[in-house]
Amino acid sequence: MIRLSNICKSYRLGEVLLPVLKDISLTIGAGEFVAIMGPSGSGKSTLLNIIGCLDSVESGSYHLNGIPIDGAGDEELALIRGDKIGFIFQLFNLIPRINAERNVELPLLYAGIARHERKRLALAALESVGLGDRALHSPMQLSGGQQQRVAIARALVNRPDIIIADEPTGSLDSLAGREIMEIFAKLHAEGKTIVIVTHEEDIAAFARRVIRLRDGRIERDDIRP
């Protein structure tokens, strides 16, 4: 369970302090499928990064599954990021010099799993996104949609409870985007908590709950029945 209370975050731009998130309080329950929307610069990515434990907050508190994130040390944060959260990015963020299978293996490598087991799990994850036959391809040899599916396999390989995706379809054509969203829908059906940032209404339509940000505040928070 994700629980944010009175989160503030600002960036310093030279002399001025630019507030990006202003007093955000938000709770996302286990198994929810949430889309965060809002105009560019409204703070969507910043909020998502905080939820994903990639960024720190300035004030307010954040508890993930009851654990306070603000006080966590480097190793504890590394464990949370590795075990509890799977990340998917707009630009896929695959490491170009290693093949698809090794890319998918990375979270397992940092999770302390033995080489043989890593390979087995990574191949299974690639199968699950329909890329079992592309394991030895380098990222450069894959289409955008395929690359994003490798990234999803990588996000899933550690069986995290929470999937976090920042504009996962933003670099894809609508067909590939649709395929990606279908995977998300399936993951949601399996009980994963999913939080995505998007500015496309038809992508957001996959989610059960849509949070709209404007100027660093929650403007609307709609739950569809």
Partner: peptide, 15 residues
């Protein structure tokens, strides 16, 4: 960027 990615995937400072 790669370092950021590795940390997001669970790499600690030490690793």
């Amino acid at each position: 960027r790669e370092i950021g990615l590795r940390k997001a995937l669970g790499a600690s400072r030490k690793e």
